[in-house]
């Protein structure tokens, strides 16, 4: 039997982008920090769009350490959720409309998060990418790196552990 013809690229791209946009724009705190994501295939890069309200030290000036921590954590959770749900987004099982409204679509929860501050965050855009060290059935370990102008010169990096969403336990 012949293999089914792949869906047109535009349809696939549109489905991926609609799901990602719904995921990002549905969370007030991500909008508050004005974090957006660049997507190339299944690869995500978080973008922290600079704004004055992100400043923590007005004398240097430098981005607030808490903002850096939050940016790394948001990038970690979104990347982890994205990879976890990607097959179901690809198949069309999870659509943009229900991604944040359906009670059955759960997200990973942060257990702990550690940030290393390597240099001060300059008052300009920052980028972050997360790498999943391991995603098991219950726990996941994720590493995130953040940079500004030069990817080789990270200004912060982080590692976090997450509790993966559990399938509902059937009642006996």
């Amino acid at each position: 039997m012949a293999r089914p013809r792949p869906e047109p690229m535009q349809v696939v791209k549109q489905r991926r982008d609609a799901a990602l946009t719904a995921l990002i724009e549905g969370v007030p705190y991500i909008r508050f920090l004005n974090i957006t994501f660049d997507r190339r295939g299944d690869e995500l890069t978080g973008v922290l769009n600079f704004d004055e309200k992100l400043i923590g030290n007005p004398f240097l000036p430098a981005i607030h350490g808490g903002v850096t921590a939050a940016f790394l954590e948001v990038t970690a959770v979104i990347t982890l959720s994205w990879e976890h749900m990607f097959p179901r987004i690809e198949s069309g099982e999870i659509g943009a409309e229900e991604i944040l409204t359906d009670e059955n679509i759960r997200f990973p929860k942060t257990i702990d998060f550690t940030v290393d501050y390597l240099r001060s965050g300059l008052p300009r855009d920052a980028y972050a990418r997360a790498f999943i060290n391991r995603a098991g059935r219950r726990y996941a370990s994720v590493r995130v790196e953040a940079w500004q102008d030069n990817h080789a010169k990270l200004f912060a990096q982080g590692t976090g552990h997450f509790l993966m969403p559990q399938p509902p336990t059937p009642k006996a």
């Binding site: 549905g26 969370v27 007030p28 705190y29 350490g65 808490g66 921590a69 940016f71 954590e73 009670e103």
Partner: peptide, 27 residues
Amino acid sequence: NKQLIGDPRTGVIHGGAVSAMLDTCCG
């Protein structure tokens, strides 16, 4: 503050906002 919500279904504040607060307090 509703702007700091991390889960729109429950209204729970995002962990990142708690981190930013803890960082400021430690400093």
